Amino acid sequence: MKRLLWVLFGVVILGVVAAGGAWVWVQREVQRAAAPPGAPTVEFVVSKGTTGRGLGRQLVSAKLINDGRMWRWFIFRRGAFAPKAGRHLVSPSMTMAEIATALESPPLPEDKPFVIVEGWRLRDTDAALAAAKLITPGAYVEAASHPERYKAPFQLPQGTLEGYLYPETYGVVPGAFNVEELIQRQLDTFAERFYLPHREALARGKRTLHEVVVMASMLEREEPVPAQRAIVAGILWKRIDKGFPLGVDATSRYSLSEWNDRKAFLQRLRDTTDPWNTRHRKGLPPGAIGSPTVESLQAALAPQSNEYWYYLHDSERRLHPSRNAEEHEALRRKYNVY
């Protein structure tokens, strides 16, 4: 009998030890992060109506925790847990307790898309931002007129950032919009999409970055088909190198309040003193005439060598290059382009 009691006592002791070991193991797993310290944060979305226990599978799928069962145990032991629906920034370096605290915090503000159209001038973007009630009129132009406020892996121009602010759809938060932050994001996108992938080619080429940007801004307006912009670039660079006026009428529209104001445009074409009139002035215009896309920038950097000196577009905007003035005039008459 006494021996049996000692056996039962031993079983109880072993059970207690095993339970204690299991408890220690569970606590260690709950406190162990899914990744070493320093892992980058990611955006995790809590859907409306999702329960705290129900988040376990999603957190495992996002590689933010290792075991959904441990998460459910943690939530059970933690007690009250009310995750807020929306977007949250969390990291796999966080413990479950830290993740839970982050998911109970106010979510990130909901941003809305704002489209900056290819070829837009600073004033066009300014007008669109003002119409969306994100800025007071003129705030974007003013902020873009101080390049010294911003950072870039290339030398920023003097005067304004026209041509360097990449046209793209950007997420903005109404009520918490900062115009200088948007401009910095545009510069960062310009660097990411064009400058960094092409900086070696820029260093080897005979054109400066600024010259490429100015040319690209004209190509964006002059040629609607991206695949044909290298042909037009070849013609325009050839004209510059040989000392001929560019004859790009889009430059005469740049300083107009309304781009499509035909009456004001025709007056500018007749003004031989206008520095933007490339029918009369030789060389590049004083600056970029809008925001070029990467396709235009690439065409300006790597123009297609060709035999053409002129080009025009028909009523369907198809490109027709020509080798000399006689061919050009014949195409004018054929397509009624004047």
Rank of each mutant, 00 (worst) to 15 (best):
237 W>Y: 06
275 P>I: 11
269 L>Y: 02
269 L>R: 00
242 K>C: 07
274 D>V: 04
229 R>E: 09
228 Q>G: 03
254 Y>S: 06
240 I>R: 07
240 I>T: 11
277 N>Y: 04
240 I>Q: 11
264 A>R: 14
237 W>Q: 07
232 V>W: 00
234 G>Q: 05
255 S>P: 03
233 A>T: 10
246 L>W: 12
271 D>E: 02
235 I>E: 14
246 L>A: 12
262 R>F: 01
244 F>P: 02
268 R>L: 02
275 P>A: 08
258 E>S: 11
232 V>P: 00
262 R>N: 02
254 Y>E: 08
232 V>C: 01
239 R>I: 11
238 K>M: 09
264 A>N: 09
244 F>V: 11
260 N>C: 10
251 T>C: 07
239 R>D: 13
235 I>P: 11
229 R>A: 07
263 K>G: 09
269 L>T: 02
230 A>S: 13
247 G>C: 14
262 R>H: 01
254 Y>L: 05
233 A>G: 11
255 S>C: 06
231 I>S: 00
270 R>E: 14
249 D>T: 03
235 I>N: 12
256 L>E: 03
242 K>Y: 12
226 P>M: 07
249 D>E: 05
256 L>V: 04
267 Q>L: 11
243 G>K: 05
253 R>H: 15
270 R>V: 04
232 V>Y: 00
246 L>T: 11
265 F>H: 15
234 G>H: 04
277 N>V: 05
235 I>M: 14
273 T>L: 05
261 D>H: 06
259 W>P: 08
258 E>M: 06
230 A>F: 02
243 G>F: 09
245 P>G: 10
272 T>R: 10
268 R>T: 03
241 D>E: 15
244 F>S: 11
252 S>T: 06
255 S>W: 10
234 G>T: 05
265 F>N: 12
262 R>I: 10
247 G>Q: 13
239 R>W: 12
227 A>G: 01
277 N>G: 04
274 D>G: 01
261 D>S: 05
251 T>H: 03
275 P>F: 09
277 N>L: 06
261 D>K: 06
231 I>F: 00
272 T>A: 07
240 I>K: 06
240 I>H: 09
240 I>G: 10
257 S>D: 15
254 Y>G: 03
229 R>H: 03
233 A>R: 07
233 A>F: 07
250 A>N: 12
238 K>F: 09
251 T>P: 01
227 A>P: 00
229 R>L: 05
241 D>G: 06
243 G>S: 09
262 R>M: 01
231 I>H: 00
252 S>C: 08
253 R>F: 14
241 D>M: 13
251 T>R: 02
277 N>P: 01
237 W>F: 07
237 W>A: 07
255 S>L: 13
255 S>R: 14
229 R>V: 05
275 P>K: 06
244 F>Q: 14
274 D>I: 04
247 G>M: 14
236 L>K: 02
269 L>W: 01
227 A>Y: 01
234 G>R: 02
247 G>V: 14
241 D>N: 13
229 R>F: 03
270 R>Q: 14
265 F>T: 12
243 G>P: 06
235 I>W: 13
258 E>Y: 11
274 D>A: 03
247 G>I: 13
249 D>M: 02
276 W>H: 04
267 Q>D: 12
261 D>E: 07
241 D>A: 15
232 V>A: 00
241 D>I: 10
263 K>L: 10
252 S>M: 08
270 R>F: 05
239 R>Y: 13
277 N>T: 06
268 R>E: 07
247 G>H: 13
